[in-house]
Simulated scan of single mutants.
Amino acid sequence: MFFIVCGEDTFRSRRKLTALREHFLNTRDASGMNVVRLNRKDHGLDEVAGALFATPFLAEKKLVELEGFLKAPKADRERIKEMIGRKPETTIIVFYEPEGADAFKDDELFGLLRRQKYSEEFQPLSGMKVDRFIREQVGSHGCRIDGKALRELVALVGTDSWLLYHESAKLCAYAAAGGGNAVTVEMVHELVNGEQDESVFAFLDACTGGQPGQAARILEGLFRSGVSELQVTAMLQRQVRLLIGVRDLMNRGVRNKHEIAKRLGVHHFPAGKAMVAARTLSLEALRDRQEDLLEMERRLKTESGRSRAILNAFAARFAASRIVA
């Protein structure tokens, strides 16, 4: 049996991955001794083979999670394809990729896996899905949110599911502390800091300006304001995606901020700011930084106690690159 979970919305895709693992533990392996989690950054194909072909320990099945292996070199992907073709029926494989299907559209292995019964892609939230997601998050805390407050929350935070998750939890905790269960627009104005994006832009400006010390101070300011490390990472990912979109359009000759904003579906003000920042970096450099952020997100979720060091290391690496287009 194979599962593939992918998509740019890493909050919902990782939540799905966790749900699959927990279902396996609850129904197949309460001991947890037959769950193996491997990622391409830290593990090689020999370890993958060992996990796939090992006999389950005192259980009928074993679960092997493989993260990032669909981005491996072609020769490695061919070997993976060969291995999964002869793996024992006792092994369940879950492939996880923090990117959308478009990133693998020409890959034979990905195409094979996508044709399987259990395949799910989590695209970024948009339209009514954003409203539904927020109401589900608020409802999970026993609260409700009115339409005006919901629209204001989206205006301030955007549609990033990680940020919406954290902000919804914060708003619900505040409502409960006051003895109620309704999230109001006044609470959104009081608790949700729309200036956080400004700080993220300032952080990126400091990085591209070769000022890692200033970038580190901006990060500390965000942390002091109550923003978590994962929230900072999510905001950085959103801004770098915007920079990539802007830089790509600029490379194709689009130089009007209103036209860029229209094509990217954003307000012209952040589009204009992104144009200024994107002039100093090549598209290749920005995509490299996007890869860095995906790796940083993974490390933040797996390496406890080192989050600030990981973020500061990213700032230093970004500042050191300074690749000008």
Rank of each mutant, 00 (worst) to 15 (best):
F122G: 06
F203C: 08
S161F: 02
Q214F: 07
K81H: 10
A234Y: 01
A309T: 12
R114E: 11
N193L: 10
I80S: 01
K16L: 13
E229F: 14
R12E: 08
L171Y: 05
R86C: 00
L243R: 02
C6E: 10
F269E: 02
R15H: 11
N181Y: 04
N39G: 03
R308Q: 13
S140M: 04
A176S: 13
T18K: 13
G50H: 09
K74I: 01
R144L: 03
L52M: 06
T18V: 13
S119Y: 15
E99V: 08
A173M: 14
L164I: 04
K105Y: 00
A155D: 14
L52S: 06
V5L: 14
L153Q: 04
V324K: 14
P270S: 11
I80H: 02
E220L: 12
R298E: 13
G265A: 12
E8A: 13
R255I: 08
N26L: 09
G44Q: 04
A175Q: 08
G194L: 11
N193C: 03
E67T: 15
R289F: 12
Q239D: 05
A274R: 03
Q239I: 03
D146Q: 02
G210V: 05
K129Q: 13
A155G: 07
L242F: 04
M275H: 06
E303D: 12
S168R: 06
V138A: 06
Q290W: 13
Q137Y: 02
R306D: 03
K61D: 15
A175T: 08
F133G: 11
L204C: 09
V276T: 14
E120D: 04
F69S: 10
C143W: 05
S119C: 15
I93L: 11
G305W: 12
G253W: 10
L294C: 10
R241Y: 06
F11K: 11
V185H: 04
A320I: 01
E259W: 03
L283M: 03
E220S: 11
S225G: 07
H166M: 13
E97D: 03
R28Q: 14
D9N: 08
H141C: 13
V35L: 14
R289M: 15
R317P: 00
K87I: 07
S307T: 08
D197I: 15
G253P: 00
D76T: 12
I80C: 00
K170E: 10
R151V: 09
K81G: 13
F201C: 02
L286G: 01
G127P: 09
R255L: 08
A54K: 02
G68D: 09
A319Y: 09
H43L: 01
V266F: 02
R77N: 03
E82P: 01
E65Q: 14
F318P: 00
G194V: 05
H189P: 01
R252Y: 10
N26M: 07
A54P: 02
A315T: 10
E186W: 06
N34P: 12
V246R: 07
M1V: 11
E89I: 00
M250I: 05
K105N: 02
R287I: 01
K273V: 05
E108L: 05
A316W: 09
A177T: 08
A202C: 02
L112N: 00
A278S: 15
L293M: 07
R298Y: 14
N34L: 07
S321H: 07
G44P: 00
E22N: 14
A274S: 03
R79P: 02
C172R: 10
L113T: 00
T159N: 12
A316S: 09
A59Q: 06
V192M: 10
R306Q: 15
K74D: 07
H43W: 04
R21T: 13
V5Q: 05
